[in-house]
Computed example of a mutant assay.
Amino acid sequence: MIQFQNEQVTVFQSVLYQTTSTVIQTKDIVLLVDPNWLPNEIEEIKHFLDTIKGERDTYLLFTHGDFDHIIGYQAFPAAKVISSSALANSSEKEQRLEMIREFDNKHYISRNYPIAFPKVDVMINEDGQRVCVGDTTLTFYLAPGHTEDGLFTVIEPLGVMIAGDYLSNFELPFIYQSAKAYKQTMEKAYHIFTNHKIQLLVPGHGQATTDSTEMKRRLDVAANYLERLCQAVMADDEQALDSLYNEHAFLSSFTKYCHEENIAIIKREYT
């Protein structure tokens, strides 16, 4: 379904995990971000893209390489792919493809395109790297922490920030890679808010927002939660850790696993 739409930006939201897929159109390009999850959802995105793209080149941006974010890759074979170099050079390609196959087999899902790991045309290696097409500028910032291959992307002159699996309105930090890197990425988000005029923030899960106060609130919530979690782990405070777990939305075996993984990573890095 369409969660948010204006003349330039359409944000689709899957029924699974409130995962977003975003289509951004400027006079120069059409940019598609993380097409997902279910075949009918990807088909809806594909139909919309075919309707609006005209003669413009299509770019396919992956915010990171988690399997749910790359699952629609081969439905758009003509698109030029953009990702971090860490995604392009990932050592976990087969593992992530196996997760897609397992998901589809578990749910009896058939797709009309092959499952493959993205072949990257434009690799992002450093903060501030830009891709310019006509009057459209994409500025990238490496965003490790959740995963090592994450990217923030700012699309100008529209003032759109694509955040990947950060800055959700409901999802607290899931640290799959590094708590220290996650903290640095939150500092980088603050830098982006300070140095770019962000008019629309789109997270990988949850609601897009045009409210600058809400953008800052999400950043503060994530940074504060991570700091309190690190303190609780270092103090070996089980009561505080239980309380922090209960702050997660949609408590389940999945959030329990993520919370335990957060604790394990913090212990490894800080104790």
Rank of each mutant, 00 (worst) to 15 (best):
Q177G: 05
S84K: 07
A189M: 01
T51C: 10
L244P: 05
T19F: 06
F174M: 11
E94V: 12
V122F: 14
I265N: 00
N36H: 13
N112V: 00
N262C: 00
I124M: 11
A208D: 00
A232F: 07
Y225D: 02
E126N: 10
Q199T: 02
N246I: 04
H205D: 00
C230H: 01
F254K: 15
K106H: 13
L31R: 03
C132K: 15
L229V: 05
E156I: 08
Y257L: 11
Y225V: 02
L219Y: 05
A235Q: 15
G72D: 03
N169M: 08
K267Q: 15
G164K: 06
V9E: 08
S14N: 10
N112K: 06
T63N: 13
N262M: 01
L219M: 05
T51F: 09
R96I: 03
G145H: 04
Q199H: 08
S253R: 10
Y176K: 12
A235C: 09
N6P: 06
E102G: 05
E148C: 09
P203T: 01
L167W: 02
I263L: 03
Q231C: 06
Y141F: 15
G72S: 08
H196D: 02
Q239K: 11
K267R: 15
C258T: 08
A264E: 11
R228A: 10
C230K: 10
L200K: 07
D121C: 10
E261D: 08
H196C: 06
D104G: 02
H47G: 03
A88Y: 02
I45R: 03
Q231I: 12
L16N: 11
S21W: 05
N246D: 11
L49A: 02
L241V: 07
G206C: 00
D127H: 15
L31V: 03
F152W: 09
M161A: 14
H248G: 01
E98L: 09
I24C: 01
G206R: 00
A181I: 03
I162M: 15
L167C: 04
L200W: 05
